[in-house]
């Protein structure tokens, strides 16, 4: 088993009104110093087999044709080690 993470973000030239709304809300909530916010999507895929080159090629094809709309979005694919320790940066997660 391997976990593959796909991040999908609007291309830099595409307006992100949701990100802008978040950025505008931050100072009201007392969070200063944020110059820009972009909002995106994260997909976590649990592969049945190893994340070898063939599997990753299929994942990229999946992202290209379905998970992202490459007219307006960019995506990145990365493998997350399934044996990695749990994320300890935050306490609000569900993992």
């Amino acid at each position: 088993m391997a976990r593959v993470v796909i991040d999908v973000m609007l291309k830099p030239e595409i307006l992100d009104p949701q990100g802008q709304a978040v950025q505008r809300a931050l100072p009201r909530l007392g969070f200063d110093g944020v110059a820009d916010v972009r909002q995106g999507k994260r997909f976590e895929l649990e592969l049945e087999g190893p994340a070898d080159e063939a599997a990753l090629a299929r994942v990229r094809e999946m992202a290209e044709t379905f998970l992202a709309n490459t007219v307006i979005e960019d995506f990145t694919v990365r493998v997350e080690e399934s044996t990695a320790p749990a994320d300890t940066a935050g306490t609000g997660g569900t993992r």
Partner: peptide, 11 residues
């Protein structure tokens, strides 16, 4: 058709 439809700019 080319292009895409995105969130209304005023949300």
């Amino acid at each position: 058709l080319p292009g895409a439809l995105t969130r209304n700019d005023h949300l």
